[in-house]
Structure formats: C-alpha cells, structure tokens
Design a binder for these strands. Structure first.
Lengths: 190, 190, 190, 190
DNA sequence: TATGAATGAGAATTCATTCAT
DNA sequence: AATGAATGAATTCTCATTCAT
C-alpha cells in the first residue's frame, strides 16, 4: 500500500515544518505508519531520504521555471510570469516551497555540497532570468534606468519574502498576488 | 573573565547560524572556551539561554523601532526610515537579525509561547506602522490608491527578503539599500 | 542454478575470514548473489548454516585423518604423515582450515555445545595419535626419552602455528613443509 | 573510584575472549559497573577504546622484547630467552596475549591500518631476531645448516601455537616450557 | 525456488543535564 | 565561578528473521 511513498510524504512535511535537524526518523515513520527499519530499507539513511526529497523538489521547481516562455512582447511580462510561477508553486506545494526557501541543514554530512549547489544553482538562474529582463526593459526604455544587479537582488528578495508568507499560510497571501505584480511593475516601469 | 558573556556570544552566533535545534550545549561551551556545567550554572538550561538571548535581541530591535520619529513631513519618509532602521540592524547585528528572521524552534518546550509572541508582536508593529504610513500617503494623494493590507504584506515581504540577504552576507547587500528605497518609492508614489 | 551451494561457499569464505560474529546474513547473500529469504528457506538460520558448514568441514578433515595408515615401519613416519595430511588440507582448503583453527563463536546460542565438541574431539584425536607415536618411538629407542604429554602439546602447537601461516597465505608457507618435518624429526629422534 | 580503568580492564578481557566484533559496549560497561555514556566520555568510541588497549598491549610486549639481552655466549641462548619472554607474557597476561595473537578485527573502520601495522611490525621484529640467531649459530657451526627463513617461520609458528595454548589456559601449559625449549634446541643444534 | 517489503530487538553514539568537589 | 565525572533518555542505524506472493 505504498509505505515508501507515505514515508516520503511524511518526511517532506516534517522536514519542511521543523527542518532536517529537528526531525527524527522515529517521528517520520510514526507519521507514515511505518517502522524505522523500513525507512532504512528504502533509503540509505535520514540524509539520503532528505537528499532524495530535495532533489525531487528542485527538479519540479526547475521544470516549472524552465517551462517559462522565453519570448514575450512586453518586457515586464516575463517578470510577471516568473512571479506567477513562483507563487503558484508556493500555493500548490507549500511544504516543497519551505524546503526551497530553507538553508542547507547544519547536520548534513555527505550531501551538504550537493544540497548547497541546488540553492546556488537556482538562485543563479533567477538572477540570470531577472537580469536579462531588466536589461531588455531598460534598453527598450520601457523600464526606468536602474542598477541591474541591485534591482535583481531586490526582486529576488521580494519574491522570497512573498513565498515565505505564502508557504507559511499567511492569511490573504494568495490575494496579495496581483498587488505584488502591480507593485513591481510600478517600481520598474518608467 | 566574563565567561558568561562568552557563552552568550557563542550561543547567539551558533543559534543564528545553525538554529536552536541543531546547536548542542557542548558546541556552545566549546566555542566559548567554557564547560557544560558552567552553562547550567549561569542559565537554567539550553532553552533558558535561548530565551534570554531572544528576549534581548527583540528588546534591542524594539528599542530601535520605537525610536523611529513618529511625525514626518513627507509620507514616504517614514517608510524610508523604517527600512533604514531594519537594514542598519541587519548590517550591524547579522546574527541577531537571523534570530529575528527565524521561526520559533521546534523543540522549545517551556518558552515556545513566549517565543512565538515575540515574532507576532513585532510583525504586528510592522503592519501597524506601515499601514498607517500607507493610509496617510493615500489620503494625502502622495501615494497611489493601493490596497493597504496587501501592500503592507508586500513591503514586509520585501524587507524580510532584504534582511535575509543582508544577514547572509550576500555580496553587495549593503549597496542595495538606496536602490531598495527607490524601488519602494517608485512602487507606491503616485 | 545452485544458489544454495553459492550461499554455502560464500558463507564458508566469510565465516573463515571474518568470523561468525562479524559476518552478516546480508553480506553472505550479497556475496552469493542471492537474497536473505532464500538463506532462510534453505537453512533454519545463520547459526544452522554455520553449523552445517562446520559439520561438513570437520567431517572432511576427520575422513582425511582417519585415512592415515595406522601401521608403519619407522616410528617418525606416522608423525610425518600427520603433518602432511594437515598441511595438505590447509593448502587445499584454506578457508576450511581457518574454521578448524578458530574458536567457537561467541554468539552461537543453540549449537555452541556441538561446535565445541568438534574442536575438543579433534584435538583429542590428535593427542591420541601423536601420543601413541611418541610412546612407540620411545619404546623402540628411535626417539629421545621425552615427556609424552608435553611433547604432544608442543607438536600440536607447531602444527597449529604452521596451519595458521599456511591458511593465511603467508609467502613461502608451502615450501616450509619439508623443513618443518625435518625440524620435528631432529627434535625427537635420538 | 577509577571507572575509566575498570572500563579498560573489562574491555581488555572481553575483547580478548570474544573478539572486538562480538563484544558490545553495553557488555563492557555492565561488566565494568559503569554506563554507556561514560565509555563515550572517556573514549571517542568503541574503536578508540580498542585501539588504546591494543597500543598499550603492544607497547608492553615490545618493551619486554626490546629488553632482551642482545649479546650472549651460546647461540641458542637468545632463542631460549625469546621463548621465555613470550611465554612469561602469556602466563602473566593471558588476555593481552590473546589480543596479540588475534587478527585485526573485521569491523575496525578508522584504525584498521594502525592495527595491522602493530601485528606486522611485531612479526617483523621476531623474524629479524630469530633470523640473526640462526645465522650466527650456523656460522659458528653450533647449529645444523638449515634454511634460515624457513626455520624462522617454523619457530614463530611454534611460539604462536604455544602462546595460544598458554593463553587459553590449557592444562599443563606452564610445565611445557622447558620441554619446548629442549625441543627447539634439539631441532637446531648440530 | 525465489523475492520485495516489513519488523522486533538491539547496536553504537549523542544530548541535555546533574553531582561532587 | 568553575570543572571532571557521570547519567537517563533519546537518536540513528543494523541485524536476523518473517510474511505475502
């Protein structure tokens, strides 16, 4: 009856809510209705379970990100699309979003590097994507003439903050969406 | 020779970087050049140490917040002041900022409620402060006519995101400051 | 395709090299290209597998021992024959030899007694065989007049030591054979 | 009241009798009248405890070995001295002797190399010592003209076998001593 | 004969905490 | 104020064994 999947689901939830370090294998299997040896039968260890989950989460997020249309008419549309994808992800997968927003767990021994590279790679993609948008918008005079790297940071900070609210289930977080896009648009469009 | 202070400093740093759950008392006293029984001599326990630190951190942050000038000429100036205070705090006290940005540790037993109320109270003050600014600005027609609660959320999200970057020591985080204020200004001013 | 035999062979090797206590059923079946339930299908358990192997090993060794010619012309020839049989066994079956030389595993629960009696019985046969040789040799004045039980012990100790070297694959162990016989001969012959 | 020493003593005995792999930390501390965390307070882990013991055992044995007089009148005397030292050690320290005679535990992870080098180094010293004796004896015509490396192996095998009997508490092992020396003498002297 | 999934018992090790001094 | 020694209660992980198929 799919106990492996139940373990993955329970672990995802607990890792997201409590963090890797504060989640025990006992807690996971208890939540999943399984026993500890079964966790170690299906996964090499707590760390491998976490890594498998994180790999999968970033895989899903990257897939969504990579599916963003690369060509659009209006320069701001691409940023709007990005915010939409990110906030959709947070609304649909709050736990996965928490994992994406979290820092690399302190006690990862073997997979710490792999973990960190997920975060860095995704941040890199975000910077790249937003940077290109801004440059294009500035070139076409649609956007005000702002510092690109600084504005990239600001927009990433804003998205992160919003995702965090969304994933935390902050009341009205969903409704904030259109307002957030408008906020950004007003901030950059000339 | 002030070992109590060294314990507090070590604990602050470790709690900030690794989180409460992932930090052991052994690690703290080792970093502080002390021994475990001394930690328990000075504090009731790991939890009490954390609580004392968190109380102090929020105390300092609240003091700065409360010192913000309540009356200003231009409506946006108050938001600019707030961002300045928050980013100053993050620049001066990155570890304390991390504690402020973190969630309440999973494994707090006795002081969980007190901890949570710190976060909620501060968020409440932020909402209140920013909300009043926005209302005033909209009333005076300085600001565009936006949804106040939603824009409050957006600005808090942005500040949170920026603080996180700042506290994480992201390259150029300091320089982003003026740009962030300008970004916000453009977003709200009509 | 003879997986039972492969399990026996893998187990023999692993028990010999690592000992019963340090060898896991997982290791055995992995080495044998089988799965754990199959081990338990063919054998009552890890202990029964070990016992079956040990029974077989002592069976083969005893057969060789019992095939030694009981009557010879020269008194020392019988001792030479014995050394030959033992060293042949060690050269042909190093793993089996290791099992014979080992002590009874600590964690045998049910078959500990049976196991111990194998070792004792074989040692008894050795003592008996060598003792009779020595007595005959002394009686016929071929051998020096030495203490029989003590010399029995010495010769057994020597054979044990040599078998251990042989089974461990010590370089040149094979070549040592003739020299060992000569050593013994010089030691006892008058 | 010296629980650390009691842990070392209990561990020495258990490691000697059952082997490293078959001895649990629980067993050790129970025998020592201590608790498991105390073992880990005094030693980094089970392996470090074993290594510390083994280092000490080889240290003591090497000290005795190195104290052997290097110059003697009769060539066989040096071999007699060696046998005396080794058999004394076995009689006085049966558990330590068992450790010296054992193979490197299968499950040593970190210190396997250090462990193996103890065994190899000591064997090397034995080979060297006995080899020199034999060469001298052959040169002076006191000894028969035998193959030196082979006879070295034979004598080591004999000593090993005798130590094993001695350490195992075989009845009469002590008395066998003089006979063993005589056996060897007769075997080599011309 | 063969296996994927599952488990109770127990292994090594860690953690926050306390005691005696 | 400070510490070496000590511990009960976890925590991660392993092991021999069984079940369902």
């Amino acid at each position: 009856m799919g106990k492996k999947i139940q373990i993955i689901e329970a672990a995802t939830r607990l890792f997201a809510v409590q963090g890797f370090d504060a989640t025990t294998t006992k807690e996971i299997v208890h939540t999943a209705g399984a026993t500890e040896p079964l966790l170690f039968y299906h996964f090499k260890g707590k760390e491998a379970l976490f890594t498998e989950i994180l790999d999968d989460v970033f895989d899903r997020l990257n897939k969504r990100f990579d599916a963003l249309p690369q060509r659009t008419d209006a320069p701001f549309e691409k940023i709007e699309n990005l915010m939409g994808v990110m906030l959709d992800f947070a609304a649909e997968c709050p736990n996965e979003t928490k994992l994406v927003l979290a820092a690399c767990p302190t006690r990862l021994r073997e997979n710490a590097e792999a973990c960190r590279s997920h975060y860095l790679a995704f941040r890199g993609k975000l910077e790249d994507y937003i940077g290109k948008c801004l440059k294009a918008g500035i070139r076409s005079k649609d956007f005000r003439k702002v510092s690109v790297p600084q504005t990239v940071n600001i927009i990433i900070a804003l998205i992160n903050g919003l995702l965090r609210q969304q994933a935390a289930g902050l009341a009205g977080a969903q409704a904030v969406r259109a307002a957030a896009v408008a906020f950004c648009r007003a901030a950059v469009i000339s």
